[in-house]
Simulated assay, not measured.
Amino acid sequence: MKQNFTVRQGALDGVEVFLSVAQHRSFRRAAADLGVTPSAVSQTVRLLEARIGAALFIRTTRSVGLTEAGERFLSHAKPAFEELVAASEVARGLGQRPAGLLRLSVPHAVVPILLEPLIASFCQAYPEVELEIAASKELIDLAAEGFDAGIRLGQFVDADMVAIPLTPPFRLIVVGSPAYFAERSLPGNTDDLRQHACLRWRRSSGALALWSFNDNGQVIEIAVSGPFIASDFSTMLGAAIEGIGLAQLPEPMTVEGLRAGKLVHVLEPFAPVIPGVFLYYPSRRQIMPKLRVFIDHVKSRPPGHDKVPGTR
């Protein structure tokens, strides 16, 4: 089928010209109002009448009046056109200042550490923005689901997205509690994990995630086994602290537990580095002000809030 490379004329073509002529009852005054020539106005009205299939104006050498079809068209077109103008003004306002609904899809683990400390200050700074946070482990289609942006680990962000780092890269490390190691030896290499209870997490796809390691510059992945499966890193952290088994977690999540002596870091030479946590959104030529100010607000958070775990 041959493609048509021209855009067909739509129902709204010529409506603004018609309304101006109807208001002034003059083609010449309408042309002056619109900043075009009278012949351009006449041509536009003729095309509109041809497309509609009815004469809209009664023209004489001395005056211009509306036909019955013109009167009926005016009664419907005028309020509809005014609504369109108002809608354009609303959209223009959203494009020029931070306002409207800002919807974010984020992992559960990000909310208390990254977002909760910033929600109050952001809402106070930008009262015209309505902030909606949907916490979920699911990887969703932002555009299809009506989200402005999402927050995920860098390796889970699609290449066609605009991605802004919220944290520096960090390691995935294996930790266990002192109580767990009281009856077991520390693993010296990745093969030793076969002798240990390993906590696993289930991805949004339903698959159990493999543990990833750096073996002399080569990435290896290992299927581990153990008594507990979780769907987010926060739950796995709690289970590791309780001594249920070993967990592989983003290092920033483990800092407090390690410092307090609740966790022990093992297999340190094998810890891989991952890109970190990113805010991402569909590529557009112009980012909306409501999202731009949110990005700037997150970036300006105080030191200590940049160690944010992510999940899928």
Results as ranks from 00 to 15, higher is better:
2 K>Y: 11
3 Q>P: 00
8 R>G: 13
9 Q>W: 04
10 G>A: 09
11 A>Q: 06
11 A>G: 05
14 G>M: 00
17 V>R: 01
18 F>S: 00
19 L>K: 07
21 V>K: 00
21 V>L: 07
21 V>I: 03
22 A>D: 05
24 H>C: 07
26 S>R: 03
27 F>D: 03
32 A>R: 10
33 D>F: 03
37 T>W: 01
38 P>Y: 10
40 A>M: 10
41 V>Y: 00
46 R>M: 06
47 L>Y: 03
48 L>P: 00
51 R>H: 06
52 I>Q: 01
53 G>C: 04
57 F>Q: 05
58 I>V: 14
59 R>T: 10
60 T>Q: 05
62 R>D: 14
69 A>N: 06
73 F>R: 01
73 F>S: 03
76 H>M: 08
78 K>A: 12
86 A>E: 10
88 S>Y: 07
89 E>Y: 09
90 V>R: 14
90 V>Q: 11
91 A>E: 15
91 A>F: 12
94 L>I: 12
96 Q>H: 13
100 G>S: 08
100 G>E: 00
101 L>A: 12
101 L>F: 09
103 R>A: 11
106 V>K: 01
109 A>C: 15
111 V>L: 09
111 V>A: 02
112 P>L: 04
114 L>A: 15
115 L>Q: 05
116 E>N: 12
121 S>T: 15
123 C>W: 06
125 A>C: 09
126 Y>S: 07
130 E>C: 13
133 I>W: 04
135 A>I: 06
136 S>C: 10
137 K>D: 13
137 K>F: 13
138 E>W: 06
147 F>C: 03
148 D>Q: 13
152 R>G: 00
156 F>S: 02
157 V>S: 01
157 V>R: 01
158 D>Q: 09
159 A>I: 05
160 D>H: 08
164 I>L: 13
165 P>C: 08
171 R>N: 09
175 V>D: 00
176 G>N: 03
178 P>T: 08
178 P>L: 10
182 A>M: 04
189 N>K: 12
193 L>G: 02
195 Q>N: 14
195 Q>M: 11
196 H>R: 06
199 L>N: 02
200 R>P: 03
202 R>E: 00
204 S>W: 08
207 A>P: 01
211 W>L: 04
216 N>G: 12
217 G>H: 13
220 I>A: 04
220 I>H: 03
223 A>S: 15
224 V>E: 03
225 S>T: 15
225 S>A: 14
225 S>F: 12
225 S>Q: 12
226 G>K: 10
227 P>A: 04
231 S>C: 12
232 D>T: 07
233 F>E: 09
233 F>L: 07
234 S>Q: 15
234 S>G: 15
234 S>H: 14
237 L>R: 05
245 G>D: 06
246 L>Q: 05
247 A>L: 10
249 L>I: 11
250 P>L: 01
251 E>Y: 09
255 V>R: 12
257 G>P: 02
261 G>H: 07
261 G>E: 06
262 K>H: 11
264 V>Q: 04
266 V>C: 10
267 L>F: 04
268 E>S: 13
269 P>Y: 06
272 P>I: 04
273 V>C: 11
274 I>N: 02
279 L>F: 02
280 Y>S: 03
287 I>K: 04
287 I>F: 02
288 M>T: 08
289 P>K: 05
290 K>I: 07
295 I>G: 05
298 V>E: 04
305 H>C: 12
306 D>A: 10
307 K>I: 09
307 K>H: 14
